[in-house]
Amino acid sequence: MRRLIISLGVTFLLFSCKNNLEDPLTIVTNDEIISNKIITKEDQEKLTPDQVIQDLIEGNKDFVDDKLTIRNNSERVREASLGQYPEAVVLSCLDSRVPVEDVFHKGIGDIFVTRVAGNIVNDDILGSLEYACKVSGSKVVLVLGHEHCGAIKSSIKGVELGHITHLLDKIKPAVLEAKETFKGEQSAKNPEFVDAVCKYNVELSIKEIRERSPILRDMEEKGEIKIIGGIYDMKEGKVEFL
């Protein structure tokens, strides 16, 4: 009996080893880890808004194509501790399904990210965007909306709940604008209508930024920055730049 048990154990071990060999671990060499270079002040100053936009487009393509990037985050943390010069600032929704840095294939020190449900604009958001561009030198402001946005749906439904009510009020102008142009069922149950409101809401936030921030408006007029919008596709991971 003991011999049978030992024999079965050896057979199981050999079977396990065989399976492991058929599905080997991925070995990463040092030359496959991307350069730990953090954006410097000199690097940032040389960038134009158009170059930054193109970099974001290419980074998103890498994300969609599932191109794995391996970074030495421990080193990047130490390098970035000396200062930060991100190339862009992204105003994104709170939604946990939109991992902004990953979406643009970026790491520590590459971009600023500010989040709020519905990617709406308020005084604190404007102050953050102004800090990113005027103080820290970012060249692009990107307002990033996304499909299936809960804040958009709630605003369409007219949800009222605590401080959420005040937040959703900021999306209502986009809902009203969509209702004037959209042909079809105008409800939160219709994904196409939700998408239409989402686009108008991104455009509304861009308009708010330009109207309410003389600092950013002046920088854009001088060509120092660009203020743009985008919509994130939840199924494909692709950003449609507006």
Rank of each mutant, 00 (worst) to 15 (best):
I5L: 11
L8V: 11
L14R: 04
S16Q: 06
S16E: 04
C17E: 04
N20W: 04
L21P: 08
D23C: 04
V28R: 07
V28D: 08
T29W: 12
E32Q: 13
N36Q: 11
I38S: 08
I39F: 06
T40K: 14
Q44R: 15
Q44I: 14
P49M: 13
V52L: 06
I53Y: 00
I53N: 00
G59H: 08
N60K: 06
N60G: 10
K61L: 15
D62S: 12
V64S: 03
D65G: 09
K67D: 13
R71L: 13
N72R: 08
N72Q: 10
V77D: 01
E79Q: 15
A80R: 10
S81P: 00
L82D: 02
L82V: 14
G83M: 08
Y85D: 07
E87V: 11
A88S: 10
V90G: 10
R97A: 11
V98E: 03
P99D: 15
V103I: 15
F104S: 04
F104T: 08
H105D: 15
G109A: 12
V113N: 11
T114R: 14
V116I: 14
V116G: 07
G118A: 00
N119G: 00
D124R: 07
D124V: 08
I125R: 05
L126M: 09
S128K: 06
C133E: 11
K134N: 07
K139W: 13
V141M: 09
L142H: 12
L144C: 05
G145R: 03
H148R: 14
S154Y: 02
S155W: 05
I156H: 13
K157F: 01
G162S: 03
T165S: 13
P173V: 04
V175W: 05
L176K: 02
L176C: 00
E177Q: 09
G184M: 14
Q186Y: 08
A188V: 03
N190L: 05
E192C: 02
V194I: 05
V194T: 03
D195L: 14
K199N: 04
K199V: 08
K199P: 02
Y200M: 11
S205D: 09
E208Y: 01
E208W: 01
R210G: 01
R212W: 02
L216G: 03
K222C: 12
G223N: 07
G229M: 10
I231F: 09
I231D: 03
M234K: 07
K235R: 12
K238H: 12
V239F: 10
F241P: 05
L242V: 14
